[in-house]
Design a protein around this nucleic acid. Structure first.
Length: 946
DNA sequence: AAGGTCACG
DNA sequence: GACGTACGTGACCTTG
């Protein structure tokens, strides 16, 4: 029996608009804008690649709109009349869409007087009649009417949103519209569509429309029921709007019986002839796609085995970079060229060559991810493209008696490598080299000087993610994006889950391919990215801030911090007792046993069983039971809400802190070693993981007890130094807010001063409001957000915002100028020149756009604060050393706070040094017009130091 | 793996 | 009138 036929209908016109808005503005060698075409090309590539895969296409056609009017305009002249003309640099791309389609040897269908939607509907129905399955590649909500199975023996119709990689079936349609696909047209007719200018009924949006149709079963029934509805605005509008709704129903109806310009069988997909495609890719400078096609490994044909998602992911951005700066000529990665170094003679040969080259990429392989617990398994080096080796050191598994592969003696090898890795004359390049620094430091080697491709990437491209098209800084992603090369992954080499084996058990030939490739790719990335620093203005932040920070943070991680295990265990026990008591009480009040930790079950019990009022929320249709909701219920006298809140607090503290921190104690050092990410936050802040030591409780009394468990070693104390109100100070400086500057200069309480300016007097209430408003400003304000926080009406919140802007006009100017600049250049900048990119700042999608705007307002402030504390950290090490304070150890950074451990006798000498380094950290690069205030405390525990 | 929740600055 | 409404993170739990 022949396999089931599966027709893919690509809504080309809709796709290109979306691609245009979500991809960077590329131009081809002739200067023609081609960003949207590029996106379209990668999508076709991916689809063609799926040929013969489960659910992949056997037949495929692209459907396009022709002209801007259709038969619908005869019915309703206003139809689509309010559409703005397409952007200037999109217009020349329309004809290229046809070229691209032809280059893939795919049929391209369009008919005057018909919209693409109608042709799609007609083809879909015809295919369905023949028993074929159909996938419509689009996310247009009008087309959702077609989803489902029709008639007996009829094929299935679903949709595919390639940008989100999401399949849309009947369930998804029903979720979106609250009705079965057949009734979607009725819902659309009621709610209208502002984009297509379908009127609908004024005052009825998606929610109301979906509710009415679900209730009455059809548009006609809903309209007929209107006269019997109880008197309301809605009733009036339904009565008045009947005609408009009926007209809208006709407009949204898809024409399913168009004459088919070409028979279905013409759409048979049968591989893609490479020549026309190559010509097209070449003409428009899509060089990495061209290379891939020529390599034959990823061509859009039935024979490829590449992961298509990954493929298109890497390419878009690769092309982006390539279009600006041609790649240095490098041969393709050839893993067979790598050497496995198994004798001291060969090792010495590599060391000599590396010294001569003065630049070597280094990568370590280990037994685990935790740099403080892992054993060194081997080291790889690279001196140029394909010029790489792997030096296995501890391969052969855990069985002491099993035969081990030939490898050099561990101690001898390290002794040979140490002078190279420590030599001032040789630059060591790593991808996340902090990890290798820590591993090697634990083996007696102090790696320096260094470069780090991950950190370079971050300095250049922070925030520059392209919609699921990875914007990260991991090696596999960078390799795809900048080199067009897919690396072997750790999973492929070591397996996954239970079957995973330690790297030391990987056979040497495979291990060499993987490990040496990592060094090779790192070398290539360095060659590619390092020159961009100078040309794109990233040198200063990289060389003066982030790179010197690497060894400093590495040292902090190795220090770790002591925690009092017994104290944590005692807290765990207390929390356990309280939790189980509360759980019983909650069950009693609820009258049923249930999982308190399940928001789903809790929501059903609170709002259905116990009948408290409160709405459904979110896509999942689940009740929200978060803190704000529970506090509201508690205010209404719901005793169970209080108990749940307390239960949540205790289980959170127990599982995340008191239990987990005990687990995190390193058996060798007896301390807890976090890992900081220098690329974790788009703004330039650090982040902390495994465990996260940047979110240890402090705001509540009960949580604060956990800080008491972070202690100093015997004879030592902990010293906590934090910047006071640094972000507000920076805002005052950057936005030229004189009253705030004066207040800071005079050492006034800043929130009180704000309260005076805004409300004329300082009371507990006005100060609290002023504080909220101050923070709101830093985060990008909206009247609704502020209203929610202050529990006032949006109008009143707006009035406060107006007052704030009036009293502090610099703030409004700062917001305006920041946004203008980000819209014009694509990125924001800190006072020290750190860039953060905002690719969605001009998105058509309001949520994306306003979200980006708020983040863009905040980024220069949060990022400058991050720069300042980073500069302080870099200077702290030599400053303490100069003062002869060799026993003072910097342990933790928590965004605006540094934690040190030091002998009690050093406190008096260390305090002024730490204070001065932190307070002067902006100078001399930047002269702030406000002082930076530092608060310092000491104690036997972190809690006591505050 | 995703969503909900909550800990921090 | 409809959307969802403060910036930046990471960890843990339940559920599908």
């Amino acid at each position: 029996m022949a396999a089931k036929q599966h027709l893919y209908l690509v809504d080309g016109s809709a796709y290109i608009f979306r691609a245009y808005h979500r991809l960077p503005p590329l131009t081809d060698p002739e200067g023609t804008p081609v960003g949207a075409v590029y996106g379209y090309t990668t999508m076709l590539w991916k689809l063609a690649d799926d040929l013969d895969k489960a659910d992949g296409p056997t037949h495929l056609a692209v459907i396009l709109d022709k002209g801007s009017t259709s038969f619908r305009n005869d019915i309703y002249p206003e139809y689509k009349a309010n559409r703005p003309p397409p952007p200037e640099d999109l217009v020349p791309q329309f004809p290229l869409i046809r070229d691209a389609t032809r280059a893939f040897s795919l049929p391209c269908i369009e008919e005057a007087g018909l919209e693409a939607d109608d042709l799609i509907a007609s083809y879909a129905r015809e295919a369905q009649r023949q028993g074929w399955d159909v996938t419509i590649v689009s996310s247009d909500k009008d087309l959702m009417q077609l989803v489902g199975t029709a008639g007996e023996g009829g094929g299935r119709v679903d949709m595919l949103d390639t940008m989100k990689s999401a399949r849309i079936g009947p369930a998804e349609v029903e979720e979106k519209f609250g009705v079965v696909p057949e009734l979607v047209g009725d819902v659309l007719a009621l709610m209208g569509d502002s984009v297509d200018n379908v009127p609908g009924i004024y005052g009825i949006g998606p929610k109301t429309a979906s509710k009415l149709i679900a209730e009455h079963g059809s548009l006609t029934a809903a309209l007929d029921a209107a006269p019997d509805m109880k008197k309301s605005k809605l009733k009036e509008r339904m009565l008045e709007g009947r005609e408009m709704a009926e007209l809208s129903r006709v407009l949204v109806q898809l024409k399913e019986d168009c004459d088919l310009p070409q028979p279905l069988d013409d759409f048979k997909l049968d591989g893609v002839p490479p020549e026309p495609l190559a010509a097209f890719l070449e003409k428009h400078g899509f060089s990495s796609l061209l290379r891939r096609l020529e390599a034959g490994s990823g061509s859009p044909s039935r024979k490829t085995d590449l992961d298509p998602a990954k493929q298109s992911a890497g390419n878009t951005a690769a092309e982006h970079a390539a279009s600006r700066q041609p790649l240095p000529e490098m041969p393709a990665v050839d893993r067979s060229a790598y050497e496995c170094v198994q004798t001291m003679e060969r090792l010495e040969h590599w060391v000599d060559r590396a010294r001569a080259a003065r630049l070597v990429a280094v990568d370590t392989e280990t037994s685990a991810l935790d740099a403080m617990a892992a054993d060194l398994t081997g080291i790889s080096l690279a001196l140029g493209p394909n010029d790489a080796c792997y030096i296995p050191l501890r391969h052969g598994g855990s069985d002491m008696f099993a035969e081990k592969p030939d490898q050099v003696d561990f101690a001898q090898a390290l002794a040979a490598l140490k002078p190279l890795l420590e030599s001032d004359a040789v630059l060591k390049i790593g991808q996340n080299i902090k990890y290798d620094i820590n591993i090697l430091a634990r083996n007696g080697i102090a790696v320096a000087p260094i470069d780090d491709t991950m950190i370079i990437s971050f300095a250049l491209d922070a925030g520059r993610s392209l919609d699921g098209i990875g914007g990260g800084h991991g090696m596999d992603e960078l390799s795809e994006r900048h080199l067009g090369h897919t690396t072997l992954t750790f999973k492929e080499v070591c397996g996954i889950g239970k079957k995973q084996i330690p790297f030391g058990e990987v056979p040497l030939d495979k291990a060499t391919e993987y490990a040496a490739e990592d060094a090779d790719v790192t070398w290539r990335l360095h060659a590619h990215l390092k020159p961009r620093l100078a040309s794109e203005g990233g040198t200063k932040i990289y060389e003066r801030v982030d790179r010197p920070l690497i060894p400093v943070v590495a040292q902090m991680e190795r220090h770790g911090i002591k925690v009092d295990r017994a104290r944590l265990a005692k807290l765990s026990e207390e929390f356990a007792v309280e939790t189980s008591r509360l759980e019983k009480e909650i069950h009693t009040v609820a009258g049923i046993q249930f999982t308190v930790g399940s928001p789903k079950q809790l929501g059903d019990i609170l709002f259905d069983k116990l009948g408290y009022k409160g709405g459904r929320k979110g896509k999942s249709g689940q009740y929200s039971t978060d803190q704000a909701i529970l506090e509201r219920l508690s205010g209404e006298g719901a005793e169970i809400a209080d108990k749940v809140l307390e239960w949540r607090q205790l289980t959170k503290l127990k599982s995340t802190y008191t239990d987990a921190l005990q687990q995190a104690i390193n058996p060798e050092t007896g301390r807890v070693h976090t890992s900081y990410s220098l690329v974790g936050a788009q703004t330039g802040r650090l982040s902390s993981t495994d465990p996260n030591l940047q979110n240890i409780p402090i705001r509540t009394e009960i949580g604060r007890q956990i800080r008491e468990a972070f202690v100093a070693d015997a004879g030592n104390v902990l010293l906590a130094a934090d910047y006071s109100q640094i972000e507000l100070r920076l805002a005052a400086h950057m936005a030229d807010v004189d009253p705030l500057r004066e207040a800071f200069a005079a050492g006034e309480d800043i929130h009180s001063r704000t309260a005076t300016e805004m409300f004329g007097e300082v009371t507990r209430d006005t100060r609290a409001r002023a504080k909220t408003i101050n923070f709101a400003i830093l985060y990008g304000i909206s009247r609704w957000g502020l209203a929610g926080r202050l529990k006032v009406e949006p109008d009143e919140a707006q009035a406060m915002i107006d007052t704030y802007f009036q009293r502090f006009p610099g703030i409004q100017r700062y917001i305006h100028e920041t946004l203008e600049s980000v819209r014009a250049r694509g990125y924001s900048e800190t006072l020290f020149g750190r860039k953060t990119w905002f690719p969605r700042i001009s998105s058509k999608n309001q949520n994306e756009r306003t979200g980006s705007e708020r983040a863009a307002i905040n980024a220069p402030i949060q990022g400058t604060s991050a720069d300042i504390i980073k500069r302080a950290m870099v200077r702290m090490v030599p400053a303490l050393q100069e003062a002869g304070l060799d026993d003072v150890r910097m342990l933790l950074q928590v965004h605006d706070e540094l934690v040190f451990e030091l002998p009690e006798g050093d406190v008096a000498a260390a305090k002024p040094v730490i204070e001065r380094v932190m307070a002067e950290a902006a100078q001399p690069s930047v002269s702030l017009s406000v002082p930076l205030g530092i608060d310092i405390g000491t104690g036997v525990s972190w809690g006591a130091a505050h």
